[in-house]
Design a protein around this nucleic acid. Sequence first.
DNA 1: TGGGGTTAT
DNA 2: ATAACCC
Length: 451
Amino acid sequence: MEPADAGAAGGWQAVPDQAVPTRNISSRVIVHVDLDCFYAQVEMISNPELKNKPLGVQQKSFVITCNYEARKLGVKKCMKVKDAKEKCPQLVLVNGEDLTRYREMSYKVTELLGEFTPLVERLGFDENFVDLTQMVEKRLQQLQSDELAAVTVSGHLYNNQSVDLHDTMHVRLLIGSQIAAEMRKAMYNQLGLTGCAGIASNKLLAKLVSGVFKPNQQTVLLPESCQDLILALNHVKEIPGIGYKTAKCLEALGIRSVHDLQTFSSKILEKELGNSLAQHIQKLSFGEDNSSVIPSGQPQSFSEEESFKKCSSEVEAKKKIEELLSILLNRVCQDGRKPHTVRLAIRRSSSKYYSRESRQCPIPCHIIQKLGTGNCDVMTSLVNILMKLFRNMVNVKMPFHLTLLSVCFCNLKALIRAKKGPMDYYLTPSLSTTSHSGKHSFKMKDTYMED
DNA sequence: TGGGGTTAT
DNA sequence: ATAACCC
């Protein structure tokens, strides 16, 4: 999360201080866009009757998210269904184990943001970072001086800090807040989705400030209030980038608050956590984050998983694997690219916390070529491969007890290139065997709307 | 929790 | 292949 490429993605090079009006990494304008209770919103769009009702989205025995109606009535994220019903008997539940519609809507949001600038990085299904630096720069240059003097914030200003229009960073962030408002408006008008946005000079701060006013509001952070924002956190674990494990380590060192981390001896922290992690998180504790917005592009992997109370026979496992695989095959077919690796992961009931074991192997070439043809052999061959991976992990001659199976396709490669004459074009084996339905013999996802 | 994702080691 | 992180 901290590649040392200062600003390469921002469009300028690191230059010596005297040269040109160069800008360092801390004068970027980043927005973090965070959809409100995303799965619940998607469900309410699918079925408008659910609006105005307390709605929870259920996976297995948990309510994993819910709308604001439900929150008002005491339902929390990750609550047991049983507890949620007790708290809120009128709670309406929908099953959210199939992520298809959420995934599709999620990519629509990312694509919409991508129309503003290609610098969009996804974080999960419901969050995106956008680097607005260049867009802001362009708008700034177009502004007349009288307009510049009238620039105002859109949405909230963190801390109600006073704005100095002579401060170029202030002006840039305000323009960023206007673009963020346009983004949220577009999300609502075109997709019917509401969300929050946070505008700041780096990803960490943008993300932290986006949650200050919820739901469906936005907040801009000016540099002078950076310390107030980060010190307002109650625990180091609330800093994105400090997860469960790191927080436990820090706690063992007596570090609980952000201030504790800021003032802790760097030397000792480095000894305990290693140089890289120590330096990284100590920077985070000051609100410093030089990581760039990395455009996500297409996904790196596709997986389907299922958890359950118990799976203790090979036959049972095979059934579940077949089910996961068949869904995945359809997904990967639609993507158009070809996976070159398959992975099987399991969780044993005896496993501590969340740990999984996995085995992976290359997908044989002849199978890759048949992917997407609807060929039944593909399914059979892949199931055989997956069962080998399974038996490599699980001694089926001994009793076992699994609580999760997951199948993953990764190592996705664009297309197989065919050299044919002056126009070398791409084709997928799937389509090379069928008639050419259009001008292009390859399948591409239509990401542009016809207008 | 679930059912996903990512990157670093 | 695992371990950490994110949602």
